[in-house]
Design a protein around this nucleic acid. Structure first.
Lengths: 235, 235
DNA sequence: ATTTCTATATTTAGTTC
DNA sequence: TGAACTAAATATAGAAA
């Protein structure tokens, strides 16, 4: 970004969105290409959008189709079957989240110690502030996904129906628990929703009770919301 | 990059390559996620590598599989059938290349005019230098793909067999033609190779006669070389 | 190997033409 | 719409812990 830190949320302004799309699409494809070449590996990207009649891909179609074929065959192999399975995927996420949180907390402790050593006059208040703040990275990555959905819904309904929207509903209880509890709970909710039986096109609405009627089909009419499934720990 | 401008070529040093992979993979996935959210579109990326037992994907597997299904269904639609067809894809590339080259040349002319106006003492020599230099961007994007293949092959053969390697063979005649000829010729070669009938796993060797015996199966043993199919005009 | 820390390289938001 | 510019935000190579 430049000249302004852009929030990770759907861009309302139509022309700005289109411009950003054009720029970032180009940038993304370049990155995919660089990764493949620099590391000598297979990488592909597919992007559908209303701005291009055809999906944009890298590498060129035939190769992309081949990569995809291999990807889809993976479930046949014992090991990869695991990851393609949504339940296991989410379990892995939870495990990683716990790991990351532990590391974060160790780090927090170290920082706290250092602070104590350098400024012995600091009371317990300082410590408490920090333990909350330092886990916020973890929370944010989960929370911003929820917000992205909420904001978009609000826009399409001109802030009419729900005062506050689904995002607020999800975010409020969050603030009353410890970061650890919040993070794991969010993940575990995702996991449960994920494993729960459901019909097609109901992924999001299952997760956000009360918001079914607010959902719109998205720009393409066939994809709920990409932000919802975002991996919280790539951020 | 930082502290050093990295050339777009396979990284020989094993640890550096792995490190770069880890960093860039993370960055790439973040970019895909941002693009989807900011623009409210579908985007996915799949990366296979020896560094991870499973392919890395965004968004999570189920969604990725769904996107892929749609992508593969596209050929059924008249319009998208065109783009999935490799021949047409390459024709489009050639057309775009011509376009881009024309634009570049127009720009060159403008710059030349400006230069002339500001420094009338500049002789014809200056003009000629410029017309060659200014088209080099176009050439580079094609040429670096060839280099990437050549360099990698050389490495695996410890510069033994071919003195100079395939890259040199491909690059040398290039320097004797005009940028326009070079650019279009490269593209048209790609196109022809592409359309020519061939067995599986012979994509690259068809294009580089004399180098079949130098090809190694690549890190995965099932993918010739991602750099070969790179879109020359994303750079 | 992983994490952290910079200094630079690269990307891109906003603006202008 | 699109190309060009510019400043700010990010990404990341390389070093060091």
């Amino acid at each position: 970004m430049a000249r302004k830190k852009v929030q990770l949320q759907w861009i309302m302004n139509d022309t700005a969105r289109r411009t950003t799309y054009k720029k970032r699409m180009k940038g993304l494809m370049k990155k995919v290409k660089e990764l493949s070449i620099l590391c000598g590996i297979e990488a592909c990207a597919i992007v559908h959008s209303p701005y291009d009649p055809q999906p944009e891909v890298w590498p060129p179609p035939m190769e992309t189709v081949r990569m995809i074929r291999e990807f889809k065959c993976r479930p046949e192999n014992d090991q990869s079957k695991k990851r393609l399975n949504q339940e296991n995927y989410m379990r892995q996420r939870v495990a990683k989240a716990k790991d990351q949180l532990e590391k974060q907390q160790k780090k927090n402790r170290r920082i706290e110690m250092e602070n104590l050593m350098y400024q012995c006059q600091a009371g317990e208040k300082g410590l408490q502030d920090m333990s909350i703040k330092d886990s916020s990275d973890l929370m944010w990555s989960i929370d911003d996904q929820l917000k992205a959905v909420g904001q978009k819904m609000e826009y399409f309904h001109h802030q009419a129906p729900q005062p506050g929207g689904a995002a607020a509903q999800a975010a409020v209880p969050v603030a009353q628990k410890t970061p650890l509890e919040v993070a794991l709970e969010s993940l575990e909710n995702q996991m449960l929703m994920d494993v729960a039986p459901r019909g097609p096109d109901s992924l999001v609405t299952v997760g956000y009770p009360g918001s079914q009627d607010m959902m719109h089909p998205g720009p393409h009419g066939h994809y709920e919301d990409p932000s919802f499934w975002g991996p919280p720990f790539f951020t």
